[in-house]
């Protein structure tokens, strides 16, 4: 590892336990590089996770970290931000953790526009528990619990976040890492609730079940499927089926929750 990045890791915990070719290491590396590029004060950053393979990430990272219960990362993160609004809060979560178990926390954190950067390690599967399908497993994909193909329609987390009120919404992939780092930087600089859906690879469970058992095959698939927001705007719905649209979808300035709450405190204490 690059010397200047070592301080961001708990080096005694490395190497991590993620499978060979797992994209989680790539996203964690991108997060650390984005934090380094922005020169954020390490002791003013708090990283929160739920349960799942992805949620092991903060365990390897040398910041204030919290590994919470399944789906509740955003609930804990909300508490931390309310108690200490000066902290920069990141939530690292998986697709199942965020959109299924934590679905309600997710929409309400977005609705409140609380200043939390949520990075979803979206590998389309529950990896830690053995490859069950999640709300973000694409329709017709195979999973341990969908041996004949998944009949559920999958969430588009970016659309969900935007409708729920998130004020920065973007999608990146583990193939396009330089772009991913820039998106993370942008999300971190954004004041308000930011969501970054990162299309990830799980060669062990998703890959093996879907005839892409090597990480290389999975990466190639991401490369083939990815189109930028700009090109997607010129494509028909039919052309867009089966594609992953990457880039920034939404950005707006809306009053942030803890700032609004500070005003309530001031008012209650007799200020104007």
């Amino acid at each position: 590892m690059r010397k200047e990045l070592q301080k961001y890791f708990r080096n005694d915990k490395l190497p991590h336990i993620w499978c060979p070719g797992c994209g989680h290491g790539i996203i964690t590396g991108a997060v650390v590089r984005a934090i380094d590029n922005l020169k954020l004060n390490q002791s003013k950053v708090c990283i929160v996770s739920g349960i799942g393979c992805s949620s092991r990430a903060p365990g390897y990272m040398n910041f204030n970290t919290l590994h919470t219960t399944h789906g509740r990362a955003l609930a804990f993160a909300t508490g931390i931000k309310m108690a200490n609004p000066d902290l920069k809060i990141l939530v690292l979560t998986g697709d199942g953790d965020c959109s299924a178990i934590g679905g309600n926390h997710f929409i309400h954190a977005a609705r409140r526009n609380i200043d939390i950067t949520t990075i979803v390690f979206n590998n389309s599967i529950y990896g830690m528990t053995g490859g069950q399908y999640s709300p973000m497993t694409p329709k017709a994909a195979f999973a341990t619990t969908a041996p004949y193909g998944n009949i559920d329609r999958n969430f588009d987390l970016c659309k969900l976040a935007q409708s729920a009120g998130a004020t920065y919404v973007a999608r990146g992939t583990v193939f396009h890492v330089p772009q991913l780092i820039k998106l993370i930087e942008k999300a971190l600089k954004h004041k308000g609730f930011s969501l970054l859906d990162v299309v990830d690879i799980c060669p062990t469970y998703f890959g093996r079940r879907n005839k892409m058992s090597s990480p290389i095959a999975m990466m190639n698939k991401i490369r083939e499927m990815s189109v930028t927001v700009r090109s997607a705007s010129k494509m028909s719905e039919e052309e867009l089926s089966g594609k992953i649209v990457i880039g920034e979808f939404h950005e707006e300035r809306v009053p942030e929750y803890t700032e609004e709450y500070a005003k309530v405190i001031e008012k209650a204490q007799g200020g104007n």
């Binding site: 590892m1 690059r2 060979p20 290491g25 790539i26 890492v177």
Partner: peptide
């Protein structure tokens, strides 16, 4: 540096420095 950025295990460093 794409190999370095895409290495899930931080096993590659590319560059003249460090």
């Amino acid at each position: 540096k794409l190999c370095e950025l895409r290495c899930p295990d931080y096993a590659i460093i590319v560059g003249g420095e460090n």
